[in-house]
Amino acid sequence: MIASARASLITLIAAPTAWAAHFLTSYVIAATACAKTMADARVFTGAAWPDLTPARIAIGVATLAALGVIALSTRQALGHWRDGDAEPPYDDATRDDRQQFLGYATLLLCGLSAVGVVFVALPAVFIGDCR
């Protein structure tokens, strides 16, 4: 996918897919950690809240991985964007315009996805236990 020279609908959604995977991974890591470390998640015990440090580290790693994928998608999209000599707004019925349009749209999605990944990683910075 990353090596593809031809921009497509699949390369377009690579970055948001990485966002979705990161989101799901972060949520599952944290939710499972809390559910499994509380003796029985559903009954109040009065004990201290379980600590989340390992889960936070895992989320950090997942964040770096997701940003890595987005960076790769960005690099590829830059390639697509520069592949040809079309001018914005890429509205001609040519291969170059199609390719560069997809590259440009992919770049925008990479930006949004990167912001999304950072937003979703912030909870792990601010919240340290299962309260």
């Binding site: 966002w19 989101f23 989340l52 999304g116």
Partner: peptide, 27 residues
Amino acid sequence: VGTGFLSFGLWVHHMFTTGLPSISLAF
């Protein structure tokens, strides 16, 4: 496209008061 993806990461905001751990809500 972006909204299409992000909108799948919002569902628990309808469940903010169910007593899930803060960190789950925070995502």
